[in-house]
Simulated assay, not measured.
Amino acid sequence: MSSAPHIQAGDIQAGDWIDRRVPEPIRPYLRLARIHAPIGTWLLLFPGWWSLTLAAAPGDLPDGWMMVLFGVGALVMRAAGCTVNDIVDRDFDAQVARTANRPLASGQLSRKQALVFLALLLLVGFVILLQLSPLAIKLGIFSLLLVAAYPFMKRITWWPQAFLGITFNWGALLGYAAVTNTLAWPPVLLYAAGFFWTLFYDTIYAHQDKEDDALIGVKSTARLFGENTRTWLTGFAIVTVLLLMLVVTSAGLGWVAKLGVIGVAMHLAWQTIACDFDDHKDCRAKFNSNRFIGWILLAGLVVAKLMQ
């Protein structure tokens, strides 16, 4: 088994735009919030934007103000989630090459400083949540329980990626509820599709750390699936695509939305076939490429809604 994870580059690269443009006292907080790695924000945001599009009236674009609120909310709540994760995992992170230079693991920030930062993020998130409908507010408050619980899952189950899927796709329910103050089959099916999509991309992500995780006892689907990962990813991709087809059908959307789903299917197939699970850079690149899935499906939904 390769020892590559012990020499792989860390999450934080010296000399990037944060080092060049941000005052030194602020840098650790931006690192803690993963501002330097926006892919997580995109993956959290897209289910919400998809859902806002489903909730739009036939012939209309999704509500622009809601799109902005969800964008800011995704940035803030992803930062809050990362902060919770790093507080809980600071000892584990110090033992993994990729995460050893994170602010808490490396000692750049104290636990108290991180907790104060977390409180500020949650305050901003709550102010954003208050702009939404009553049902959306209730759903948003409940999601905090999921955010708080997620970091512990890798200690107790081989399926922490499943719990991430439950948490990360909450926007699929929240977006529809924010506009309509109700839920319906299209957003529920979208939530289910997002769950399997998360299982897909986060299993690829977890392959970056599988050797270090084995040494320190952290569980993941990457370790569980091992040599059978490609087979599992194929299954996750198929279920994701089938559920997305049910979404567009139940929402009464036309051929353009289905074309978007086909584009998603092609991208998932490419990742499944091409990913080298023993190459950390390739796993990261394939994981990052999932932002294109977000845009492909969003484009199909928006155009189909305008044509509805």
Rank of each mutant, 00 (worst) to 15 (best):
L54W: 01
L54M: 09
L54E: 06
L54N: 03
A55I: 03
A55E: 14
A55S: 10
A55F: 08
A56H: 10
A57F: 12
A57S: 15
P58D: 15
P58A: 15
P58W: 13
P58T: 09
P58Q: 14
G59F: 09
D60F: 10
P62V: 00
G64I: 06
G64F: 15
W65D: 14
W65L: 09
W65P: 06
M66G: 08
M67I: 07
M67T: 06
V68N: 11
V68G: 08
V68C: 12
L69M: 00
L69S: 01
L69K: 04
L69F: 12
F70H: 11
F70R: 03
F70V: 05
G71V: 02
G71M: 06
V72W: 08
V72K: 05
G73Q: 02
G73P: 07
G73R: 02
A74Q: 11
V76T: 07
M77K: 02
M77S: 10
M77H: 04
R78V: 01
A79Y: 14
A80L: 00
G81P: 15
C82N: 04
C82R: 00
T83Q: 01
T83H: 03
V84W: 02
V84R: 13
D86A: 10
D86M: 00
D86N: 06
I87P: 08
I87C: 11
V88K: 10
V88L: 00
V88F: 12
D89S: 09
D89Q: 09
D89A: 07
R90A: 10
R90I: 01
R90S: 07
R90F: 14
R90T: 04
